[in-house]
Each structure stands twice: as structure tokens, then as C-alpha cells.
Simulated scan of single mutants.
Amino acid sequence: MTRKDEQAGQAAPAGAASAEAVEPVTAEWTRHAAEGVLLDGFHALKHALRFGARVPVAVTTDRLAVRELAQSLAPDLLDVLDGLLREVPETTLRGLVPRAHPTGVAALALRPSAPGWGGDGDGVPGPGAGTQEGAPLVVLDNPRNLGNVGAVVRLAAGAGAAGVLTTGDLDPWHPAAVRAGAGLHFAVPVARRQVGRLPRRPLLAFDPEGDDLRSVPLPPGAMLAFGSERHGLTDALRARADHLVALPMRPQVSSYNLATSVAMALYHWMARPS
């Protein structure tokens, strides 16, 4: 028997997915790819599942490694992940996503529709599960950096904000924003609205010329609006604002990072006397 014959007769490595097993997984991925939300990595999938995302397809290059990770970081999801994840070769994963995550996990989730979030009478999502009554709604006015948008979504989810709205042309559900948000777009309502369609709530807009935030009471359910780091608030948002407020800042420092500004404002709300 030649060496070639010996190699042909060798068994496939344990756990390796056959072409027949991979084909229906890739077909399901293709079916949902156009409208699905890419969950890039274990932590994004973990968060999305915890907050009720509908995930029709999820893949990994190593089911055993993911199970060990889940036992440590998400034991509450072990059974769900066991039933959901399908193992594929690394070459298949690289063909499905623009950049394979180090955890070797990727999934597609169905983007929630606005009517499913509830609302306050104007088609804008109301407070989600786990959100305190009167929680503020974060508004990002014409943001330009998708990574910042995702970071703000992550902050809003952790702080229990009522949601995140963006104005302008960037989609807050862009894959780069979802990646930066670590799957927490499913933990808090996230949508895009133009200034004229913002909900009917008090709007406090952050501007260096505004009143010190520490001296301004936050109305229940207020919107907290932040301009882009380079250009600040748009004229339309400034005209819509009920009050201009400013974050305390050392003289000669020009600005904070957008996500830092949102974190400071949300902490001010969280630290208010009960």
C-alpha cells in the first residue's frame, strides 16, 4: 500500500465536521445573512441570548472550548449553547464573517422591530425589562464613529438607561457598532430617529456653554443628548433642547471622549439621592 493510500484511509479527526454536516449550516447562515445582526464572538452571543435575542444560527470552530468557556462565564446558558452551536472548520468560519473572532464563535440574530419594544405613544421604544421608571434616554446627535456608538450602547445597558437613539445617517445596528457593544444592543432599545421625530420628553443637551450638570435636576424620563466629538450638537438638536448643560472639566481641556461623557452623565443620574 502506498503512502497516498494510507492517508486516504485515515479517519477524520475527532469532532471534525463533515462537508455534509457543514452544508446545511452555511445554507442557514446565507438565508439570514442579509437581514441578520452579526454577533461576533462568545461574549456578544452570550449577552444577546441573555436578553432574549432570537438566534437562528450560531457556529464555532471548537464546541468543547466554547463549552469550557461557558462553564466559567455563562453557566446559565450551557444548555442553550449546546443545542444552538454547530461546529464548522476554520476555513468555513472565515468565509462567513469578515474577521474571525479569537473565541471562534459567530452567530446571526434577528434584529428586533420597533413595535415589539413597546412605546410611549410616538413609536419610540419605552423602558425595557430591568429599566428603572424614569430612566433617561440617551440621544447621540449625528455620531460619526461606530465604535463610540457601540460603547454607548454598552454603557446604557449597564446603567439601565431607557434606550439609545441616534440622529444622522449612521445605522446604530451596523456590525461595527454591534461588535463594540458586545451584543448588548439586545439589552436596551436602540434606534435611529431624526431630530424632528424625537419623543416628547424633556431634552437636556450637553454643550460647553451650558449650566454645570451638577446644578441641574434631571427630569424623570429626560433625554440626554450628546453631539459628535468634532462638531458638537447640530443646530436642529440645539434648537430642540429644553436646557443646555455641561460636564465639569478642567480649564484648557477641550473635550471628553463621547462614551466618557455619556458615562459621566449616566453616573450623575445613577448617583442621585433616592
Rank of each mutant, 00 (worst) to 15 (best):
K4W: 04
E6K: 10
A11T: 02
P13G: 08
A14N: 02
S18E: 03
A21I: 02
E28I: 04
T30N: 03
A34M: 00
F42G: 08
H47G: 05
A48Y: 10
L49H: 03
R50W: 03
R54F: 03
V55F: 00
A58Q: 02
T61F: 02
R63H: 13
A65G: 14
D76Y: 05
L77E: 10
D79N: 03
G83E: 09
E90S: 10
V97K: 11
A106Q: 07
A106T: 12
L108V: 14
A109P: 01
R111K: 15
R111T: 12
S113D: 15
A114K: 04
G116Y: 07
D120I: 09
D122C: 14
P127N: 09
P127I: 11
G130H: 08
E133T: 10
E133F: 01
D141S: 07
N145W: 00
L146R: 07
A151D: 01
L155C: 04
A156H: 07
A156G: 13
A157P: 02
G160E: 13
G160C: 12
A161Y: 09
G163V: 00
T167G: 00
D169R: 14
A176Q: 15
A177P: 01
A182R: 06
V190N: 08
R192P: 11
R192Y: 07
R193K: 06
V195F: 11
V195R: 04
P199C: 13
F206V: 06
P208R: 12
P217M: 11
G221Y: 14
G221S: 13
A222V: 13
A222M: 10
F226M: 12
G232R: 07
T234W: 12
D242I: 01
H243S: 01
P251A: 03
S255G: 03
Y256L: 08
T260K: 02
S261G: 11
R272Q: 14
